[in-house]
Simulated scan of single mutants.
Amino acid sequence: MTGSRVRAAKGQGGLLREQLLDIADRLLEDGGTDALTIRAVATSAGVTPPAVYLHFASKRDLVHATCLRVWSSLFTEMEAVSGGIADPVTALYEICAAYIAFGLRHPAQYRLVMDGEATEASRRNEDACFRYFRDKVAACAAAGVTVDSTTETARLLCSGVHGAVCLLIHQEPDAWPADTAGYVRRAASSAVHGALLTASRASRPSMSTLGRRN
Rank of each mutant, 00 (worst) to 15 (best):
A139F: 05
P88R: 01
V47P: 07
R131A: 03
I100F: 02
V161Y: 05
V161N: 00
M114L: 10
D87Q: 06
V165H: 08
L196C: 03
R201C: 09
S122I: 09
L16Y: 10
T33W: 01
E29D: 14
G194Q: 00
S200I: 01
C140T: 00
R155W: 02
R26Q: 14
R185Y: 07
L20Q: 08
K136W: 07
S189Q: 14
D174A: 15
T33F: 06
V113T: 04
T150R: 06
I95K: 09
A118I: 04
H162V: 02
T76C: 06
D135Q: 08
A91P: 02
L167G: 11
L156I: 09
H106C: 11
F102Q: 06
V147W: 01
A101T: 05
G182T: 08
A65W: 05
T48C: 07
Q109Y: 13
R5I: 10
E126M: 08
A98C: 03
I23P: 02
Y132G: 00
W71K: 06
V165Q: 06
E77F: 06
L112G: 12
Y183C: 01
E126D: 14
E172M: 11
D25S: 14
R7M: 10
A80V: 13
S203L: 10
G116S: 03
G32Q: 04
H162Y: 13
D30T: 11
S190V: 07
E152G: 07
G31M: 04
A202G: 07
Y110M: 15
D34S: 14
A91Q: 01
F130P: 07
V161L: 06
A24C: 08
F102E: 00
R123W: 12
F133D: 06
A42I: 05
G163E: 10
R201I: 09
H55C: 12
A24I: 02
R204Q: 15
L104R: 03
R185V: 09
T48V: 10
A57I: 07
C96L: 07
Q12L: 15
S73R: 11
M78E: 06
A202P: 04
S189V: 12
C140A: 04
E117S: 04
F75W: 12
A35H: 08
M78A: 08
E94Y: 10
G103C: 11
A128D: 03
A45V: 02
D87Y: 13
G31Q: 13
L92V: 03
M78F: 13
A195M: 00
G182I: 04
N214V: 12
A86Y: 13
R186A: 09
Q12E: 15
A191W: 00
Q19V: 12
T150N: 03
R213Y: 12
S200M: 01
I95C: 10
A101H: 12
